[in-house]
Design a protein around this nucleic acid. Sequence first.
DNA 1: TATGCCTATGAAAACGTTTTCACGGTTTCC
DNA 2: GGAAACCGTGAAAACGTTTTCATAGGCATA
Lengths: 327, 327
Amino acid sequence: MSVGIRDVARAAGVSTATVSRALGRGPVSDAVREQVEAAVRATGYRPNLSARRLRSKAAQTIGLIVADIRNPFFTAVSRAVEDAAYAAGLRVILCNTDEDPAREALYLRLMEEERVTGVIFAPTKATADALTPDSLGFPTVFIDRSGLPGAHDSVVLDNVAAAGALVDHLAGQGFARIGGLFGSTSSTARERQAGYEAAMARHGLAPLVRAVAPNAAAAEGEAARWLAQADRPEALILSNGLILMGAVRAARTLGLTIPRDLALAGFDNEPWTDLVEPGLTVIEQPVAEIGAQAMRLLFDRIESPDQPVRKVVLSGRAVLRGSTRRG
Amino acid sequence: MSVGIRDVARAAGVSTATVSRALGRGPVSDAVREQVEAAVRATGYRPNLSARRLRSKAAQTIGLIVADIRNPFFTAVSRAVEDAAYAAGLRVILCNTDEDPAREALYLRLMEEERVTGVIFAPTKATADALTPDSLGFPTVFIDRSGLPGAHDSVVLDNVAAAGALVDHLAGQGFARIGGLFGSTSSTARERQAGYEAAMARHGLAPLVRAVAPNAAAAEGEAARWLAQADRPEALILSNGLILMGAVRAARTLGLTIPRDLALAGFDNEPWTDLVEPGLTVIEQPVAEIGAQAMRLLFDRIESPDQPVRKVVLSGRAVLRGSTRRG
DNA sequence: TATGCCTATGAAAACGTTTTCACGGTTTCC
DNA sequence: GGAAACCGTGAAAACGTTTTCATAGGCATA
């Protein structure tokens, strides 16, 4: 059968308690510690993490709940989170919700059952608004989206400013009929829309807004319908990388030349955005920083559960490329 | 304190054993099952998965060990794996090795300590060659790369045929100086290289091969050096999506027009490959199918540990685009 | 020398489940 | 009508650790 701590204890000629202490950071004499380590090597002992978790009540696990890992934004953030977690000796359980509140609820319940150390969560607007500070049984940090003000720690982009910067840039280039295509499920998309509308108003321009499910296929369909109209916009702002990609596809299909027939500006400086001619103007999010900050906030919250709620707002960086150059 | 199964038992007026059976699929009368369910709702009971795992010796967890989740191939595969896992009631622990054998060893040890149900693993060549069937304490399926023949279940692409198809296509278009830039750490890259060389020989062409670390930055640097030479290749085959991206970047930097100055063909039909003009010819891998098949193999192996080793070889699909059109 | 306080250690309890074993009550089978 | 099989249930053991509690010895202090 499997070798347990009792076998190690027997091999080392000490008690199981001493083995446990030698392996952890308990007080043990150097001689005994060496004996134990030798016994561990000799027996090929591997601690049973389930037993350890049960007894010590420290799951050493964090949950990472995102909409879809295939969204490059979440891919990058998740990588940062995992690096930080494993560096701290924590395991990561990854969950994809597809922006479905039912699956969000399911995974939150799973996190409770795992007795996780903490959770990093990108909730839909519906779930975020429904979650009060104490409805979650574990420390939680929201990323990308925030919920009720002051309810949860969060790290988000300054979406209003970022969207405004795109409008300013386009307006500065002389575009007037600037449309906005925004995701329909996240608070982030709402904020970007608000920033867009505020900036449009500043420039005395009429907003043109449409909402769409945040995936490339839906965005392509909606953009194609929009751009086929006679009074189509001459520039488009897209609220994330997937929607941006859909819009590029739609423009291609309709034979529109960028930026002559249509200017495009979006979010997420994904590796491909500078490869599609003439280069796509985007807001770059500090993805690694977002993941790292989220972990920092989570650790702080775990350490001092009662400290005031914090919201870290990071600035995007406008990467100006050919897609918004006035023909 | 936290509510446990004892509290539920007390509330329902039954023993803990009965609660356990009612929650699982043990034999219980309908009346008692209802009482228990009511008690669960009343108490807000959440089973402690660590305790459950310890006692039942079923971790209900699978490990997914890949090189880097940011590689879109792994992103897509991982999503398929997770869907299948959660559908079967299993949790997924995700690990990134960055193709580092030391981290591979670290994560394999972690998997032992977790007593995982099974592992899906994309090993480096070094690790794959060192792993005998019984050196792993849990069922394992290799993806993307295979190890010693007959040692582990695996699901891989027919890399030789796929690389050959690219060569055939390029040669058919009249290209002669066809170079190959391959990753240096995976068996997959070796196979693609072998397929390339065999096909080149078939066509009576001299192979031109370089190896590079499998990431976009390294590939860009190596491609730039290569393409700056006077006797540079007139076509390039790239062994994965990251290397393909690096090559595109290098061509851009050097001002080479595709395909007039340089034809490109690669692997991985990532969403952006049809957006960069004039469209990149690639081998599309059935990513979702790879993930799903890996889970199927894993389940089969868990069910019957002693069945013969299986290797599922899937075919790629050549997606021909403008990047390989003879000028 | 006696007292008290640390330190390293072992015995045993505890963590929250599932599983084994036993048992009484029905039903089924000859 | 008795034996055998079956069913639902409870008491208690078991899973593999960590932690608590107790203790023996060493060392400093009075």
